[in-house]
């Protein structure tokens, strides 16, 4: 059992495209972009990999912020950026393919941003059948 080599550091939103360019120049592959809600803000993790060294940079954004797209360096980022847009309702600028909110068809708009009110419904006790109490 070997430990996996993963590192994480935070960067400013304005540095994102520059940092991504640096990863691209190093010959890294885009592994994923993932968003996490933390109270009133969102953390977005960009993971890059070269020779199984997984480096993650993190930006922290708030509702209404515009996130620059990294499509100029990684064309394939559109799938993750559209996911963030559809699930969290954040605006990503300059995506290579913009689905306009139609990548994920969800019943509620931006379900991870405004989770629906869940009311617990009391389960109906079924009318005990004829074989009631067949212990």
């Amino acid at each position: 059992m070997k430990d996996q080599n993963t590192t994480m550091r935070g960067i400013a939103v304005s540095d994102l495209v520059k940092e991504t360019g640096a990863f691209k120049a190093k010959g890294c592959r885009l592994v994923q972009i993932g968003c996490t809600g933390i109270g009133d803000a969102y953390e977005i993790n960009y993971t890059f990999d070269k020779d199984y060294v997984f480096e993650t940079v993190r930006i922290t954004v708030h509702d209404g912020d515009v996130i620059p797209s990294i499509a100029e360096h990684y064309w394939a980022s559109f799938i993750y950026e559209n996911e963030i847009h559809d699930l969290y309702g954040l605006t990503v600028e300059g995506m290579s393919i913009d689905f306009g909110g139609h990548l994920f068809h969800t019943a509620i708009e931006n379900p991870f941003k405004n989770p629906p009110e869940v009311t617990k419904v009391e389960k109906e006790t079924p009318a005990p059948g004829p074989e009631e109490g067949d212990a």
Binding site: G129, G133, A135
Partner: peptide, 11 residues
């Protein structure tokens, strides 16, 4: 057909 819920009444 229902019931799909199995109901057990304890002693």
């Amino acid at each position: 057909e229902p019931p799909f819920v199995d109901f057990f009444q304890g002693p």
